[in-house]
Design a protein around this nucleic acid. Structure first.
Lengths: 210, 210
DNA sequence: ATCCGATGTGAACGATGTCTACATGAATCG
DNA sequence: CGATTCATGTAGACATCGTTCACATCGGAT
């Protein structure tokens, strides 16, 4: 449905075809790899056709980023579901925070190109992606998932309520920063075990220091 | 020395002229704003002249980044010098860690374009910049300054020695992540007071959780 | 004084984002 | 059912960018 030459004059659903081509480009190569002309090429269409669906390159990029954020959210939710099985409420709440962090870091390591794209030049507002198919049931974005975990911690008495406001920024800072150190920074050559160990230690630091 | 048309055929010191032009470009506009041809234009020189000093665009970019890292290190050292005045060793060690973090976050807020450039697509190895004039006496890079502060904490008994190894990654993660949230993320619209308060709280979290 | 290596110039190529004008065809409406 | 309209795609062009190849110019070593 992407590279194939099309018989009909109209494409059918060029918009999503372009976004999907963009996601493929960006998956390896990161944000720089999103070149409008190549995306149209893969969709079997003239470069200008893209302008019927996106105002410019940046608009296409934002659409791709939104889709990528949906994938990230799904990865985080997958981890969350495991933690939610824990019986003890305090244990579960702590597990949820760790799960959110693990999902985030794991995604950064496994899908570097996508991760870089998701946060290229800023986290922005982390909008919920428009495509509901790619989003999990609740439709929460990564940031909201983190808030969810923190709420659970307060509810379970693991985190004092007065420290709840703003806590997502502290936790997110730590995890996001480590993700960058891992994919591009001094930890990029560390073994997977070392990376995971440091990640776990970071999450303990956050939990302790919050 | 930059825009001026030159009378001599040879420029004199085109290499540093290009780096300085690049720094100006990147200061506003961030990494994307470093366009080779514009840098040569500002140096009053033909585009190809750049290739006598840099293998390609990326090489020029790396040179600019190195210079920017030097400025960042200087900003951090300025903050450090204030903390080093404290008498009580424990107090001083803790103050040094906070100073390093403050310098980092302050630089990110004050020089967004430069900060983005310094860490565009990865922290890499954070090399010491080649230009000694821009570097402070010790010639330490940002990462080493952080290690310095942590060493002081161990020495002062504020940080258990067994937790020292790897601690720079945890601290850097937190501070770097928050810097990104501030310049591009959900905290970009927060007031300077809120940003500073969150920064201070983050640093307390790190100190406590390390 | 002469040569030569370092440095800068000139013209060109392919690629990219984007603009303006034109072509096509599916849906709407008489 | 046929004409028209409007969303969608095409054609061609432009400015800009990074980069290459051949040539020009100069300053310092011989």
């Amino acid at each position: 449905m992407s590279i194939a030459a099309r018989s009909t004059y109209h494409h059918g659903d060029l918009r999503t075809a372009l976004v999907e081509a963009g996601m493929a480009l960006v998956r390896e190569g990161g944000p720089q790899a999103l070149v409008l002309r190549e995306a149209t090429r893969r969709a079997g269409v003239t470069p200008n056709a893209a302008y019927r669906h996106f105002a410019n390159h940046q608009a296409l990029f934002e659409a791709v980023r939104a889709a990528v954020l949906g994938v990230l959210a799904a990865a985080m939710e997958a981890e969350l579901r495991q933690a939610e099985r824990l019986r003890d409420p305090a244990e579960r709440a702590r597990g949820m925070l760790a799960a959110v962090g693990r999902g985030y870091l794991g995604f950064a390591r496994a899908e570097t190109g996508w991760f870089r794209t998701a946060f290229a030049f800023g986290v922005h507002d982390v909008e919920v992606p428009a495509d509901p198919a790619r989003t999990a049931a609740k439709g929460l974005n990564p940031f909201e998932l983190l808030g969810h975990a923190l709420d659970a911690m307060v509810h379970a008495g693991v985190l004092p309520a007065e420290r709840r406001p703003g806590a997502e920024y502290l936790a997110w800072s730590a995890v996001h920063g480590m993700a960058l150190l891992i994919i591009d920074g001094p930890l990029r050559n560390a073994s997977a075990e070392q990376q995971q160990a440091l990640g776990a230690r970071l999450l303990r630091m956050v939990e302790l220091g919050l």
